[in-house]
Design a binder for these strands. Structure first.
Length: 741
DNA sequence: ACTCATTGGTTTTTT
DNA sequence: ACCAATGAGT
């Protein structure tokens, strides 16, 4: 086979990495240095020069999108289908393993996947069931606690709760949660990974089988792996196997969800013979943009070290705009985009990046009124919509009666007279016997004589006559749906369920326009099912055939369905900095660059958090190919309150030589000659009594002492050390400080 | 069971 | 400001 297409498009560094000898390999790849390309060409290299077959390849990514792209590009490069390769996300591949070996993994054959919303609802139910104070045990926090333990591989039995009653209760909740999941036959996302890990850890011969098979294990975005993913990768690759991992410690922005950058270092320790490569030549951005990124990230400690360079030119400076407020900022961005447009630039080449989703609003309003098409990424995805999840819950019950989460979701939707009382009785009964709600209901309503446990109530006692009838109706409904749809094609199954559960009527009643949209979404679900082809999604199935309904449900949970339909419309792209990772745009705006917003207030105080924010900023800067605009608002309406901001510290970390400040348009009356703000104004003149050490009062921040003064006239700033809020920089002209004493 | 008012809380996101 | 979740009242 001709290997020139594999090696020719590569630079020296890339080629060295791609042709590395079989064995552990670590590629530190800077932003825009051809990371994915190296991964893909490495696979091609393994298949040609190293004599591997597609059967031997396991390639793991974090997102479905990345996995799909990888498969696509390999097949294109090699000109052949790579069906026998395992290419997928950590979760997808873990899922596949668990389906194949569900018995060894201790799972029922039809187990289903709990997404994080389902998980939270279930946890909430458990907290209530244990009659705990849900202000002390916040479902979200408990969810985080449980997932953290799972990410670290800790099972309930191994939790060290000590004598702290809070910890003990949490540990009890974790145990109860696990029990419920196991009984219901459902698995959450963290559980997929943990089970797959334990499966290999506890079954030496199975692990040996896969190690023998996957002689080439490749991992993308290695800096995003958590402990379990890393441990699993090691089991899969073996200690003397050939893991080929690619990552960039400077782009680690998911520490908050369990990612461990340390895994990059750990890799070198665990594989002392590993070859390491650095990709530092950047093909994306101008020199100025790279210099800015390099300078910024140099402020982080403990980096593995990397300096991006380009053979291209310096390009334009980084533009910094100090907006008066957030609307002025949006206006500014809008006009620059119109200008870009006028000069022949496409809208899809432009990205507006921000720290948090709420910030998109002002831009949307500005774009809307100027009729500039835009697309906001993020937000609710298809399979996460309430009505879709309702329909899926029915389907899940049809497929598995013991799924309590689904049971609770739809037992009274649409309302059929199964109220809180009835459910409480049912929950209590189920808890007492340690069975699912379905099982408890069926048992109590069967009318069969049974042996009662002491203190157990009869159906009539527990639910009342009306509740009992209604509940029986629900059980019969589900059974009927199951019987009526057996053997039907998937989409007809789903259509039948939607038509016969009363969901349509339920949403039709919705007075607002929402009901209509919901019904359309349900119809869309049917057509999604019609187009669903399980084989196309996980090719190379070797006896891992799943009933179509179950395959579809797993698909819905694992791929929440990021619609890529209108990606090619010519729209301005708007998204958070996190979402932007891995993408590139000729023109990039980073908006809302104010301390407290970015870096975010909640990360500002600890070093680790701040460094992660800095990496996020690094990610943002390195998205830009040709032009980068950075902006902040001196005044911003946040949570309904006006507040004054100071420029993000990250702006100052960009060398001044690379920056060109854009002066705000002169407001209101033009000064007669020259620029007023350059006229020296004694601080006293602007604000009497404002001097170092003075005690001042701020309407929001309270009392404090002036630490520092800077700037002149309308640009004057003060740094005040507030008694309760700590030190803050404020614009003197907006801060409205009152001198105390 | 549904409607309306009040309350709390607001980073980032995949799977 | 805005959303979701809760609680009181019809």
């Amino acid at each position: 086979m001709d290997i020139s297409p594999i090696l020719d498009p590569l630079n020296d560094e890339q080629r060295a990495a791609v042709t590395a000898p079989a064995g552990a390999t670590l590629v530190l790849a800077g932003a825009g240095s051809g990371k994915t390309r190296v991964l893909i060409h490495r696979i091609a290299w393994a298949l040609t020069a190293l004599g591997a077959s597609p059967h031997n390849i396991l390639a793991v990514t974090f997102t479905n999108k990345a996995a799909a792209e990888m498969r696509h590009r390999i097949e294109k490069l090699l000109g052949m289908p790579g069906g026998a390769m395992w290419v997928g996300t950590f979760h997808g591949i873990a899922h596949r393993l668990l389906r194949l070996h569900h018995q060894l993994a201790g799972l029922p054959p039809g187990f289903q996947i709990l997404d994080s919303e389902d998980q939270q609802r279930l946890i909430k139910k458990l907290i209530r069931a244990q009659e705990l104070d849900d202000t002390r045990f916040v479902p979200r926090d408990v969810q985080y606690y449980i997932n953290k333990l799972k990410d670290d591989g800790v099972r309930p039995a191994q939790v060290k709760a000590g004598y702290d009653p809070m910890q003990q209760t949490l540990a009890k909740l974790y145990a109860a949660y696990e029990e419920t999941c196991q009984r219901s036959g459902v698995v959450d996302f963290a559980e997929l990974l943990l089970r797959a890990f334990e499966l290999l850890r506890d079954n030496a011969s199975l692990a040996a089988h896969y190690r023998a098979r996957f002689t080439h294990v490749l991992v993308d975005e290695f800096q995003d792996t958590n402990s379990i993913q890393y441990a699993w990768t090691r089991l899969m690759a073996g200690n003397d196997g050939s893991p080929f991992v690619v990552g960039d410690d400077d782009q680690s922005i998911y520490r908050w969800r369990g990612a461990r950058v340390e895994n990059l270092r750990q890799f070198s320790r665990d594989y002392p013979n590993a070859t390491m490569f650095r990709l530092e030549q950047n093909y994306r951005s101008t020199g100025n943009i790279l210099d800015a990124a390099n300078a910024l990230i140099a402020n982080n400690s403990g980096r593995l070290g990397k300096n991006l360079w380009t053979s291209g030119g310096k390009g334009e400076p980084i533009h910094v705009y100090a907006a008066y407020n957030e609307r002025d900022e949006a206006d500014f961005v809008l006009h620059r985009i119109l200008e870009w447009n006028r000069r022949g630039g496409a809208r899809r080449e432009v990205a507006v990046l921000y720290r948090s989703n709420a910030q998109s609003r002002v831009f949307e309003e500005a774009f809307l009124s100027a009729r500039v098409p835009y697309k906001v990424y993020g937000g609710l995805r298809f399979y996460e919509r309430a009505e879709i999840k309702d329909a899926l819950a029915y389907l899940r019950l049809v497929s598995n009666r013991h799924d309590d989460a689904s049971f609770e979701r739809v037992v009274n939707l649409p309302t059929r007279g199964i109220g809180a009382r009835t459910l409480e009785g049912l929950r209590a009964a189920a808890r007492q016997r340690g069975e699912s709600m379905w099982a408890a209901a069926a048992r109590m309503l069967s009318g069969m004589p049974e042996q009662k446990l002491p203190g157990e109530l009869s159906a009539a006692e527990a639910f009342g006559a009306r509740g009992a009838t209604a509940l029986l109706g629900f059980l019969q409904l589900i059974d009927r749906l199951d019987a009526d749809t057996k053997g039907l094609p998937l989409h007809e199954q789903i259509d039948h369920v939607i038509q016969n559960t009363g969901l349509i009527e339920h949403f039709r009643k919705d007075k607002q326009d929402k009901g209509e949209a919901r019904i359309e979404n349900l119809e869309e679900l049917v057509s999604a099912a019609r187009g669903f082809d399980a084989d196309a999604l996980s090719p190379g199935t070797e006896g891992e055939k799943l009933p179509p309904l179950e395959a579809f449900l797993a698909h819905a949970a694992l791929e929440s369905g990021e619609g890529q339909a209108d990606e090619w419309d010519d729209c301005v792209q708007m998204m958070t900095l996190h979402t932007a990772k891995g993408l590139e745009f000729p023109l990039v705006f980073m908006a809302g660059m104010e301390d407290g917003l970015f870096p975010h207030q909640r990360s500002i105080d600890d070093l680790e958090g701040l460094e992660e924010e800095r990496r996020l900023c690094y990610v943002g800067i390195t998205r830009a190919m040709k032009q980068l605009y950075v902006s902040y608002a001196e005044q911003r309406r946040l949570h309904g309150m006006d507040s004054f901001g100071v420029p993000s510290r990250f702006i100052e970390e960009i060398p001044a030589a690379l920056v060109e400040e854009i002066r705000p348009r002169v407001q209101v009356a033009r000064p007669a000659i020259g620029v007023a703000r350059f006229r020296p104004v004694a601080p006293e003149a602007a604000a009497p009594g404002i001097k170092l050490g003075a005690r001042v009062r701020h309407t929001r921040f309270g009392d404090g002492v002036i630490l520092n003064l800077e700037g002149q006239g309308s640009q004057a700033r003060v740094q005040v050390n507030f008694e309760h809020q700590g030190a803050k920089w404020l614009m003197l002209s907006y801060a409205n400080l009152e001198i105390v004493r």
